[in-house]
């Protein structure tokens, strides 16, 4: 299977799962914004995406995408480190054309994963998971608004979330166009366009997330 045993194949898996996760983030961000305008509206969304079969199926697919993305990242990184050889450069300088993020995707990815773990514990665990298992009877799984207000109401937590979004921003500014490049949809004209689109899209996405954190942490 070429997706598993060729370097480009593995990268295609990374790209497709990555793009899929960006799509997921876009929906997630749009949903979050609702919380700023209307608590009821937000809770309605939470209920809609509760323990319903389609929401559960969706969650499973997203989880699979994320797991694949992470596993392939680790696999590829292992191969790449081996390809680098045993001796490392004593002096190494990053050329100015090279984005910092592009050479630190794994580190950024790890920060993102830690953030996800925290986020899942603080929200998903108390909402969808709680709804299915009833593990935390004192928490109303459909009152997402209250959860946000409580969690992000703590300015320290809001700052932690903002740092997380920054890591996501760095990860995606490279990841977005890089995925397109890996899929081969690139040429001399589109290279700079994709990079530009990638920056704009990621910035809008992360701003959307950040606005909610700032609103609940420092304004509401």
């Amino acid at each position: 299977m070429w997706l598993l045993n060729s370097s480009i194949g593995k990268k295609v898996v990374m790209s497709l799962t990555g793009l899929f996760l960006i799509l997921f983030l876009t929906f997630h961000m749009s949903m979050n914004l609702v919380a700023i305008f209307s608590a009821e509206g937000y809770n309605a969304v939470c209920e809609f995406l509760g323990a319903n079969w389609y929401a559960l199926a969706g969650t499973a697919v997203i989880a699979a995408g994320a797991v694949l993305h992470i596993l392939f990242a680790l696999w590829l990184t292992y191969i790449n480190r081996r390809a680098r050889g045993k001796d490392r450069y004593k002096v190494s300088e990053r050329p100015k054309e090279v984005e910092w993020a592009s050479q630190n995707m794994l580190v950024l990815g790890i920060i993102v994963v830690i953030g996800i773990a925290l986020h899942l514990y603080q929200f998903w665990f108390k909402m969808q998971f709680n709804e299915i298992t009833g593990i935390l009877p004192e928490v109303n799984p459909h009152d997402g608004y209250a959860l946000i207000a409580e969690t992000l109401g703590n300015p320290i937590m809001a700052v932690i979330y903002l740092v997380w979004f920054a890591a996501i921003w760095f990860h995606l500014t490279h990841g977005f166009w890089s995925a397109i490049q890996t899929l081969g949809w690139n040429n001399k004209i589109w290279l700079s366009r994709w990079k530009c689109i990638s920056n704009i899209y990621t910035t809008i996405l992360c701003l959307g997330f950040a606005v909610v954190a700032i609103y609940f942490g420092f304004i509401a």
């Binding site: 990268k11 390809a83 990053r94 090279v98 984005e99 890089s178």
Partner: peptide
Amino acid sequence: FGNCTNTGA
């Protein structure tokens, strides 16, 4: 050889 992560180096 390793695979490409599009750093552009």
